[in-house]
């Protein structure tokens, strides 16, 4: 089938970008990224016709877990399908003659490096600021010494399933990172091991989140709808509770 692709092309971090159109022939079994592989092969084979060169895009595991692939596809991060990363989106979701616009994740905290590649290191910096339980290697008690109720363990897992792709930020009308930070904070707040550092963790992580230039949450819910791992908005409610708890605790 024939697809018309409008792709954001930007030569470097400080270059001006713009959408450029390409016509491409694909089959329904291809993944969305394989379509880009085919496009790039076309562009590489015709350097005279396409002096702009192939399209840079981030990808790695191509099985929906590493969180490296990004792309905003027709205005939705990771494209139209529920709980599906860009790499797992297949062209059978489209039909002959479709026109698809592909842009990079857009946020001040995710500057564009080239074409569809953005810098998401702000997420790492948030996690440096307390996104851990302080346990030295070798200092752990026996794993079964601390039973954890299945309900709590399952809920913690639901939050821990976050793959750190940044779709929540890209989808949010405010480019807010509350769902991501909420998931990280909630995972550790839900397990007993995370209790000791609970107060300091949330405060520091949110401070860094603010300093990185993410927007504020106004509860649109776009993050949840775009999240390929279906992290619930409950993470944000939980994050707010944790913040309130921390405020009370530090006031003591």
């Amino acid at each position: 089938m024939k697809i018309k692709l409008n792709v954001w092309r930007q030569a470097g971090p400080n270059a001006t970008g713009g959408l450029k159109s390409y016509d491409i022939e694909v089959t329904e079994h291809m993944s969305f990224l394989e379509m880009f592989d085919v496009l790039n092969e076309q562009l590489l084979r015709n350097p005279d016709k396409h002096p702009e060169g192939p399209v840079a895009f981030d990808h790695d595991c191509r099985e929906g877990i590493c969180g490296m692939c990004s792309m905003v596809i027709d205005g939705v991060p990771h494209g139209p399908n529920k709980a599906t990363t860009t790499c797992q989106l297949h062209m059978r979701s489209y039909k002959d003659g479709d026109e698809i616009t592909v842009e990079p994740f857009r946020a001040k905290a995710f500057p564009v490096l080239r074409d569809l590649v953005v810098d998401r290191s702000s997420f790492d910096r948030i996690q440096h600021a307390g996104g851990y339980i302080s346990v030295r290697t070798g200092a752990a008690p026996d794993a079964n010494a601390l039973p954890i109720g299945k309900a709590d363990a399952d809920e913690a897992f639901d939050y821990a399933a976050c793959i750190g792709c940044g779709a929540c930020v890209a989808a949010c009308p405010n480019a807010s990172a509350m769902l991501f930070v909420g998931a990280k904070v909630s995972h550790l707040a839900k397990v007993p091991q995370g209790q000791v550092e609970r107060v300091g963790r949330v405060t520091r992580m949110v401070d860094v989140m603010d300093a990185e230039g993410f927007g504020g949450c106004t509860n649109h819910g776009e993050c949840e709808a775009a999240c390929p791992k279906e992290i619930s908005l409950d993470a944000i409610a939980m994050l707010n509770t944790e913040l309130a708890r921390a405020a009370v605790a530090s006031a003591k």
């Binding site: 409008n6 954001w8 959408l19 905003v72 027709d74 205005g75 939705v76 616009t101 842009e103 857009r106 946020a107 001040k108 905290a109 989808a171 009308p173 405010n174 480019a175 807010s176 230039g213 993410f214 927007g215 504020g216 106004t218 509860n219 649109h220 819910g221 776009e222 949840e224 709808a225 775009a226």
Partner: peptide, 26 residues
């Protein structure tokens, strides 16, 4: 908050599709 949110996305999307939010939220 509004200023912060405007600032957080200096470049708007050419195409933005919302899946969950409402006209009154926006």
């Amino acid at each position: 908050l509004n200023a912060r949110n405007q600032e957080a996305r200096p470049q708007a999307y050419a195409v933005k599709t919302n899946k969950a939010t409402t006209p009154y939220a926006l």
